[in-house]
Design a protein around this nucleic acid. Sequence first.
DNA 1: CTGTCTATCTTTAGCAG
DNA 2: CCTGCTAAAGATAGACA
Lengths: 221, 221
Amino acid sequence: MARNRVKMVYVENDTSRKATFRKRKGGIMKKALELSTLCDVPVAVIIESEYNSVPEVFPASREAMGTLLAKWDKLSLVDRTKKMVNQETFLNQRIAKATEKCKKVTKENRELEVKKVMFDCLTEKTAPCLLGKNELLDLGGVVDQYIKGLNRRIEFLTKNDDASSSTSVVPAAAAAATSLAMPRAEMGSYSTGFNDTIQENMNVMPIVKDFDLNQMQSEEL
Amino acid sequence: MARNRVKMVYVENDTSRKATFRKRKGGIMKKALELSTLCDVPVAVIIESEYNSVPEVFPASREAMGTLLAKWDKLSLVDRTKKMVNQETFLNQRIAKATEKCKKVTKENRELEVKKVMFDCLTEKTAPCLLGKNELLDLGGVVDQYIKGLNRRIEFLTKNDDASSSTSVVPAAAAAATSLAMPRAEMGSYSTGFNDTIQENMNVMPIVKDFDLNQMQSEEL
DNA sequence: CTGTCTATCTTTAGCAG
DNA sequence: CCTGCTAAAGATAGACA
């Protein structure tokens, strides 16, 4: 978890594995204690270790532990199976969630790519004629959205800010760039240098979001 | 755990508590899954929640869970009690460890304070005559150690570095300062400006180590 | 409420003693 | 093997959509 990102696979090296085991066991026990303290819920953790001949460990109090296990014993076979199945469903749920997130990120990335192309066009790095039909359609959609934002922007400026109302006569492309930059400018002073704005956005655009299943937390169960 | 350091006490606010519960439960489940993956050990976590009518959760597989609980059932009353008692001892062990660490940090801090006084004396901010008997004794000890370090330093330089051997004639106080700075200089070039060295150390000295029990991990159990 | 963001706090992998 | 350190990865409280 530190220094190097660690792969979530069995640690082959005996020494490292033992070290990891000890550290992480301590970590879980602490977390369990914290959860039970913060939320006043009974928590039990059982860890079977090859290093401990009496291999169970519990952060719960003696009584709480007994109660927890008793409850488990008393669960109907149906409920128990249901819960057990939940465990089998555990990974499936994570996968489903991850898939959904992955889709979303992919979509966002496509949008970012299109925006990048748009700015490339503005700075003449890429000729639109080199693009395929689908790319052009996507690009058209993005540009349309920018122009819509631009119109709202013009309306806003015309109503509220005389000094800036002159922006309503700039070429559409530069205005679109301004529009894109708006979210950042909203809380401060408004940007007026279009080339700067474009350049600024050029630096931001290439960022493509990364995605990692392991980064996701189970949440929900 | 973020934005604000959180006190380890029951969270009164219902909304916050539920949010904390959900987040931390997810966190523990993930950690449990990671531990069992990395070290290939069976892990079970049972969390009884007021929000879940069938209030138990397990990251372990169906079989592993059964095995774990069976093992617990088969534990002799003696072993079980021993383990249980361990839970009662849990906090005591943490307290013991914390106390020990606290002592250590306190001692380190006292040494740092003494060093600070020593450098104050060198820069004439504090007259030694204003100090009490114990402080003077401590100070004497520290100065002695510096002088010892100085002698080793002189010996080293006399043997290995003709250009620097002239330092063997500097006043003891400045030499002591050099000695103190040595650990940092050992891997690079040697410091030669004594006033700079003193000033540099003045900036470092006032750092007094902090100590927090919650920062400690249970480790060991 | 459920999901998202992010400034901070916490955990821990890899080393050195 | 254990202990301590530290930089980097991870978890999460609080605020917000």
